[in-house]
Write a protein that binds this DNA or RNA. Structure first.
Lengths: 199, 199
DNA sequence: TGTACATCAGTGAACGCGCGTTCACTGATGTAC
DNA sequence: TGTACATCAGTGAACGCGCGTTCACTGATGTAC
C-alpha cells in the first residue's frame, strides 16, 4: 500500500520472479474489484517494486492483460482436455462441467478472456490457446449426439455453460441458486441444468 | 468534441431535454467503446453542455449508470411481457428469443445491466425492473414443461440465451455463427440452439 | 397587465488525484577469456 | 582464480493527461398576488 517504503533492505535488488508476482497481483485485484479497477502502479506496489518495473516484463497495460488472457485460455484448454480424457461416459457433459468449474475457480482469468477489449485478441499465444479450448468444446458435442446436428448441440452446450458461469460470477442468479457469487455449488447446478435441457 | 465552443449562440440556455440527451450519449459510447471508456465530461461535451451540468440530473457517475440499468430492466421486462402475450404456441421459446433480441438491439443497456459493479444494484427502480423481467423469465418455463421441474428448465433456458447473447456481443462466437458481433442473425441462431437443446 | 420572488438549469473556474509512459541511471548477474 | 565486459532487472524523477467533483454564480422560467 504505502509507496513511501519502496524496498525494504531485506529484499534483494532483483525480485526473483516479478513477472509471476505481477500476474498474481493482477488476478487478485481483478477477482476482487474487477478489471476496470486495475492499475499497473498498484500492482507494482503490491509486489514491492517501483512503478516503472512492470514495463520491463509486460510492455504496457495491454501487454499484461494479454498475458492473463493467454494463460487463461491455456489453463482452460488443459482443463477441458483432462475432463474429456477422464470422462467415463458422457464426455459432452464432462467438458461442460469442467468449463463451469474453470470459470468459478479462475474467475479473474475468465473475466478477462471474454472481454477482448481488455487485451490484444490477435496475440499468437492467445489465439493458440483459444483454438485449443475451442477444439474441446466443439469436439465433445459430436460424441454426445451422433444423430443430431452436432455443431448446434455443441454450441448450445457452450452457451448454456457460459451463461451459467457469467450469471453466477456476476451475482445475478436469484434466490436459492445462490444469492452471492460464492454460495452453493455452481458445478452441481450446471449438472442439473444440463440434464434439464438436454434430455 | 471541442470544448472551446461550449455553447453556440443559437442554442438556448436551457437544453430542453438534457437528461435524455446524456443518457443517449452514454448508450452510444458504451455500445461503441465499452462502459469503461465512459466519462461524464465527454457526455457533457457531446450534448453541447458544460461539464458540470450532468451532476444536476444524475448526482454522479454511478447515478447515471444506475439510470441506464433501470431503463434497461424496464425495457427488457416490457419486451418479455409482450413476447409472452403475443406467443402463439411456445411462450418459453418466444420469451427466450425476445431476450436475445433485446440484448442485440440494446447492447449498451444489456452490458450495463449485467455488470452490477457499474451502478447501484439496490436502487429501487433497478430492483423493480429486475423483478418484473425475472417474473417473465421464470414464469414462461412453467408453461413449457409441466412435467419437468420447471424451475431448472427456466433457469437453463435463461442461461442458454444469456450465454448466447454474451458471446455474440463480445464477438466470441467462431466462424459461421458470426465472425463479428453484428454479422448474421442472433435470434435465428437462438432458435436453432433452443431446438437443439430442448428437444 | 405588471411586479416580486422562488425555483430550477446550466456555467466555468478550480481542486486534487491517480494514472500510463518515458528515460537516463544504477545495481546485480553471468559469461568469455 | 581473476578480470573485463555485456546484459539484464529495477529505480525514481518527471511528463502530461483526463478525470470526478465542488461551488459560487448567473440566466431563464414560472408562479403568486
Amino acid at each position: 500500500m504505502s509507496s513511501a517504503t519502496p524496498r525494504p533492505p531485506d529484499r534483494p535488488y532483483h525480485h526473483g520472479n516479478l513477472r509471476r508476482a505481477l500476474l498474481d497481483a493482477a488476478l487478485d485485484v481483478i477477482a476482487r474489484r474487477g478489471a476496470a479497477a486495475l492499475s499497473l502502479r498498484e500492482l507494482a506496489a503490491a509486489a514491492g517494486v517501483s512503478h516503472g518495473a512492470p514495463a520491463h516484463h509486460f510492455r504496457d497495460k495491454a501487454g499484461l492483460m494479454t498475458a492473463v488472457a493467454a494463460e487463461g485460455f491455456d489453463l482452460l484448454a488443459g482443463r477441458l482436455e483432462a475432463a474429456r480424457e477422464d470422462a467415463d461416459g458422457d464426455a459432452f457433459l464432462a467438458v461442460g462441467l469442467a468449463y463451469v468449474a474453470f470459470a468459478t475457480e479462475h474467475a479473474a482469468h475468465f473475466q478477462v478472456m471474454y472481454d477482448p477489449s481488455l487485451y490484444r485478441p490477435d496475440d499468437p499465444a492467445v489465439t493458440a490457446g483459444r483454438e485449443r479450448a475451442g477444439a474441446q468444446l466443439y469436439g465433445a458435442a459430436g460424441e454426445h449426439a451422433p444423430r443430431a446436428p452436432s455443431r448446434e448441440t455443441g454450441l448450445a452446450g457452450w452457451c448454456l455453460m457460459h451463461g451459467l458461469a457469467t450469471l453466477w460470477l456476476s451475482g445475478n442468479l436469484p434466490g436459492p441458486a445462490g444469492p452471492g457469487p460464492n454460495d452453493g455449488d455452481a458445478v452441481a447446478l450446471a449438472r442439473r441444468l444440463a440434464l434439464a435441457a438436454f434430455r
